[in-house]
C-alpha cells in the first residue's frame, strides 16, 4: 500500500501568540513552529499500517518554517521518502490553498491512501483532509482512531462523541483524517534524525501555483474577552495550596474539611 502523509507546521501553542501589524494573523516571523500534532498521529498510524500491510510511506511538506526538521524526523521514524514543495508561504496557508497544492502534486503521484491529521490549530476555513478528498473526488473519513488492512483496502475506526465508534471499509483511494494513532507516536533520537539528514535528501520541487479562494475574509484576530477570567492566586506553591484549601473548605465541598 502506497501511503502519503502531508505534514503541516503550526505555531507552538505554548508560545505567546503575537499578532501581525493589521491584526489579521499571527506574527509568523518570531514564533516557534512545530509539526501539527495530529499529523504526527497520522504518520504513526501510516507507519503501523505499512508494517502490517507492506508498501511505502511518503511524507510531503509545504515550505513552512522548520518543515525540514519535521520531514527528516519522519524519515528517521521509518518513512521511505520525503518531499518538500517550495514557494513563498511566509504569510501562512489556508486549508483550501494547502489542499489545492497537495491535490496538484498528488495528481503526479501513485498512491492508495492519504493519511493526514484530522485538524490543525489554524484551519479556520476547514480541515485540509476533507477538502483534499473532495478535490480528488475520493472517499474520506475524519476522526479516525485506527486504520488496518482489510480485503485489499482498509478498515477505518471512526470515533464519535462519547466514544462510540463506527467501523468503515474503504475499497478505493481515500483520504483519512487521523485523530489518534493506535499507539503513541514513536520516539526518535536526535542522532537518528541527523543520520537521516545525511543519508536521504529531501526531494524538493516547486509547489503548484494554485487559485484556491476560501470565500472568507479574516477581519481580525483577538484573544477571547472572557467575562469571567479566573481570579489568580498569588504566592509560591505552598501559599497557593493554602488558598485552595481555604476555598475548598469555605464551599464545604469536602465534608472532612468543614
Amino acid at each position: 500500500m502506497q501511503i502519503i502523509v502531508p505534514m503541516q507546521q503550526t505555531v507552538d501553542l505554548v508560545e505567546e501568540l503575537e499578532l501581525n501589524d493589521d491584526g489579521t494573523g499571527v506574527e509568523r516571523e518570531y514564533l516557534k513552529f512545530v509539526a501539527n500534532e495530529w499529523d504526527e498521529q497520522a504518520l504513526e498510524e501510516a507507519l503501523l499500517l505499512k508494517e502490517a500491510a507492506g508498501g511505502s510511506v511518503t511524507v510531503v511538506g509545504i515550505d513552512e518554517t522548520d518543515v525540514d526538521g519535521t520531514l527528516f524526523s519522519a524519515l528517521a521514524k521509518g518513512a521511505d521518502r520525503a518531499v518538500k514543495l517550495t514557494g513563498d508561504f511566509e504569510n501562512g496557508i489556508s486549508s483550501h490553498q494547502r489542499a489545492a497544492i497537495l491535490a496538484a502534486w498528488l495528481g503526479t503521484q501513485e498512491f492508495d491512501l492519504v493519511m493526514v491529521g484530522v485538524q490543525s490549530p489554524e484551519d479556520l476555513d476547514g480541515q485540509t483532509g476533507v477538502i483534499l478528498a473532495n478535490l480528488l473526488d475520493t472517499a474520506h473519513v475524519s476522526v479516525a482512531i485506527g486504520v488496518e488492512p482489510h480485503e485489499g483496502g482498509v478498515k477505518v475506526r471512526q470515533e464519535f462523541g462519547g466514544g462510540t465508534v463506527h467501523e468503515l471499509a474503504l475499497s478505493g483511494r481515500a483520504v483519512v483524517g487521523v485523530q489518534a494513532a493506535t499507539a503513541a507516536p514513536r520516539y526518535v533520537s536526535i542522532s537518528r534524525v541527523r543520520a537521516a539528514m545525511q543519508d536521504s535528501p529531501l526531494e524538493t520541487l516547486p509547489a503548484a501555483d494554485v487559485d484556491a479562494p476560501t470565500g472568507t475574509t479574516v477581519r481580525r484576530l483577538y484573544a477571547p474577552e472572557s467575562s469571567s477570567h479566573a481570579e489568580m492566586l498569588e504566592g509560591d506553591a505552598d501559599a497557593v495550596a493554602a488558598r485552595i484549601l481555604e476555598i475548598v473548605r469555605e464551599r464545604g465541598i469536602v465534608k472532612e474539611l468543614s
Binding site: Q127, V130, G215, T216
Partner: peptide
C-alpha cells in the same frame, strides 16, 4: 468535520 470541508470544496461556498 467530515462534511463541511467537502461541501465547501464541492460548492465553492466559504467555510468558517
Amino acid at each position: 468535520m467530515d462534511v463541511a470541508g467537502g461541501l465547501s470544496a464541492r460548492t465553492g461556498n466559504g467555510l468558517v
